[in-house]
Design a protein around this nucleic acid. Sequence first.
DNA 1: TACTCGTGGCC
DNA 2: TGGCCAAGAGT
Length: 394
Amino acid sequence: MPKNSTKKNSDAGAAVLAWYDVHRRILPWRAHPNALADPYHVLLSEVMLQQTVVETVKPYYAAFLARFPRLEDLASASQDEVLRLWAGLGYYARARNLHRAAVVLMRDYGGVFPDDEAALRKLPGVGAYTAAALMAFAFGKRALVMDANIERILARFGGIETPLPAAKSELRAVLDALTPAVRAGDFAQSLMDIGNAICTPSRKKKGGKKKGGQKKGGQKKGAVSQPQCALCPLGDWCVGRHGDPASLPRKAPKSPRPIREGVVMVVRDESAEVLLVRRSPHGLLGGMVMFPTSGWADGSRQQRHYPIAPDSLLARLTKHPSRQKLEAKVKHIFTHFTLYLEVEIVRVQRQELGDLDADAFWLPWGQLSDEALPSVMMKVAALVAPVLNDENGA
DNA sequence: TACTCGTGGCC
DNA sequence: TGGCCAAGAGT
């Protein structure tokens, strides 16, 4: 039951909704105020928006809707086609799970989204946030929609000093007290807009305290570096505003990001096709297409050795006389490690390689962009392109 | 609970 | 330049 019983909470909730009616962002997947959105559009956009900024999502969302206008179109596609459209967006398990969710919805629900948070929560890739978003945005139900924006607002609003992620249950209680009985979807999206434009994350400055005369709230394209409390509809109701809002929410310290290293080979045959390998469907870059690469080993050792299976294709390529090692390496930063890849070009006659594994295939160099290549491999392609484009001539 | 899992933008 | 951050979910 809503615990939105105090005057402070009901007044604050009403102020958030009133702010939304004037200042809300217009977004392709968003319904008008007081209206419901198509649940398929909500699912598609919310999955894409997981850990991803709005401006990055927009072109992908448009491309998906153009290719898969309805849930059944997505469900009947191949996973590889979904991954190809998703390439570059990152967190590829989202694409695999989205596709699986579409299949489950067609198979088990006749293509009709269940109006049931627990049932939604069981769909692949649908967690607490996305299930609540579907309930609120597509079904008009009162649900507790809590993303990183809303967590930040709640921590400041409630003056919650417990560090994340331990603070989540506390924050959820604050949200439950604040969420109105009607227009819960507009309320949540209002908070996300406020979190994006007003109650922004603090950009910490190194060294000591900043001095008095700062630049005034010159709001650039993206987020502002400090919260703009004077613009916030939560106003004086916010506990954090009376202290140091930028210091909230507190966060547990992060573990350092290790360095890994490996070697990748761009193998070109006599007809200017290159060799590609599809990764296994789980784990890092699961289901995506790569140039043949060694394992990516911890690079902290003095004597590096990239894990290359003795009888593997890569081991054979390592002995090929035409190997050309490029000067520049590819650097790519993943969430939890930094990767340095040595890049080699190997020019072969296709018959030299013998039989290939089922996950390997040849592709004309010019058709790379049609494949599900992750960004790290696009960097490799860009590094090699000046050389291969010359050779492939005309 | 604490990892794993991409990518791009910002200061 | 490098660390932080983003409409989180799975294990």
